[in-house]
């Protein structure tokens, strides 16, 4: 019982300001996580080959000089929407037979303030967090500094979180 309460409290902390949290009651050996590495690899290849990690593409997007990024994000959202709709409609389960749940997102002012701040950073670095990793992979080693700085930014947010408007 005590363990359940601890796990619940732990989930509550992990859920703060996060979208990708889902508690699973199933326990797996570590190598089950390798499948996420493989999905990541495929995803990274798409990132590079479709030039989503290109600083220039991001500049074009914010100057309305190219449809490319709008096409990528727009078609990704459409495919994602249809997929989520199908998963919900047919109550599709995970490969382990667990039911799929998507935790609802609550609105807070952080989505506005944080959103604007991230927008500033996105236009400067030409990269959101995913592309930072892929850029380093393509050999732009200096981007590790940008990534470390992003980790520092996350840490500073965590430090001041209670004092910031939400």
């Amino acid at each position: 019982m005590q363990q359940n309460i601890d796990a619940g409290a732990d989930l509550q902390v992990r859920e703060q300001d996060a979208i990708c949290v889902n508690e699973s009651r199933l326990q797996h050996k570590w190598y089950h996580n390798i499948k996420y590495l493989i999905v990541g690899i495929l995803f990274g290849i798409v990132f590079v080959k479709a030039e989503i990690i290109s600083w220039f593409r991001i500049q074009e997007m914010f100057r309305l000089q190219s449809f490319h990024m709008y096409g990528v994000i727009g078609s990704a959202v459409v495919v994602g929407m249809i997929s989520v709709w199908l998963i919900r409609k047919y109550n599709i389960k995970t490969i382990y037979g667990e039911s799929i749940s998507i935790s609802p997102k609550k609105f807070n002012k952080g989505q506005v303030y944080g959103g604007l701040i991230f927008g500033f950073g996105w236009a400067i670095t030409g990269a959101c967090p995913g592309p930072l990793f892929a850029q380093i992979g393509t050999g732009a080693t200096v981007v590790t500094i940008t990534l470390l700085s992003a980790i520092a930014g996350t840490w500073v947010y965590g430090y001041f979180r209670e004092k910031l408007p939400h």
Partner: peptide, 23 residues
Amino acid sequence: MMVGGGFLVGFGTRYAGGCTSGH
């Protein structure tokens, strides 16, 4: 651009509760 921009990306995404992929 690198240190400042990176900081804004890390601070902003967490404050917003997600980035381009999550939101």
